[in-house]
Amino acid sequence: MAGHAVEHDYHLIPPSPWPFLSGVACLVWGVGMVTFFAGLVPRTGESPMLEWFFSKGLDSLQDSYRPVADQVGADGGWAILLAGTIMAALVMISWWKDVAAESRAGDHTPVVDIGLRYGMIMFIMQEAMFFVGWFWMFFELGLFHKMRAAWNTDVLENAPEYADSMAPGIHAVDAWNLPLMNTIVLLLSGTTVTWAHHALIHGDRKGAKWGLGLTVLLGLFFTGLQGIEYVELFHERGEGAPWLSTDAYGSAFFMATGFHGLHVLIGTIFLGVMFLRLTKGGLRPEKHFGLEAAAWYWHFVDVVWLFLFAFVYIIFASSLHG
């Protein structure tokens, strides 16, 4: 069969360096993550290579259970992390450039296009499961916290000293301030991205540009507001406002909203790239899966935010305050 000419519409791709380089970039990034956040501590002089590689002092392990805190920002770690991030970014840019070029070259036949759609849906499904993890954590902490602390009243009577290990009081973030604003911003951006999509379908490229541009701006605005909220919380930490390290609510709050924020950022970049492609004349009315994928992603991020707003900000905040 090898002799036959290709008679199918699938997209066979020539060898590409990006996946391999992604693996390398991931390794650098991973080592950077560890060195930056935890610090690498060679224990003895036995491994000179490691010593050369990692800049931590040899004495660190003597007080071995010392919190890893004072090693945050350990010298050298940030450089590796930065290098890994830059490498990853470069690889991704090149990779997606290739994809865009292939799309222009007509490699994305109808059947390939359907495949891309499946791929994107599956990707969003796994993102959803990722957030299921965080919400599950949050519900567990919120719903069963009292039950856990007072595991069994009978037990507590018998062993009063165990009551000491009860969790400290929970403080939550006020939902009706910046978070409300953020909700409105995101909902609005959901409509603008739909506007852009419809405009493009109807050949109104100018409208599409406006819609997409506004969406990107709203996305950036959201990130800005979120940043302000974090900074405020940071300054008020210890005065009753939740912070990452103060209690379980703070942890769940910051990690869940933080990962959501990261997704907003990714979505914004995704939409921004589509905006660039649009201004450069890419994306045709009949074929613009890139934009659709970005819009799907954006709606997904939107929905996650609504859940966050409903549960993390409103429902649990009020129930936990009391």
Binding site: R148, W151, N152, V155, A159, Y162, S165
Partner: peptide, 11 residues
């Protein structure tokens, strides 16, 4: 067989 978990009292 009952797990001993910090912060939780099992009976």
């Amino acid at each position: 067989k009952m797990d001993a978990v910090p912060g939780i009292i099992n009976e």
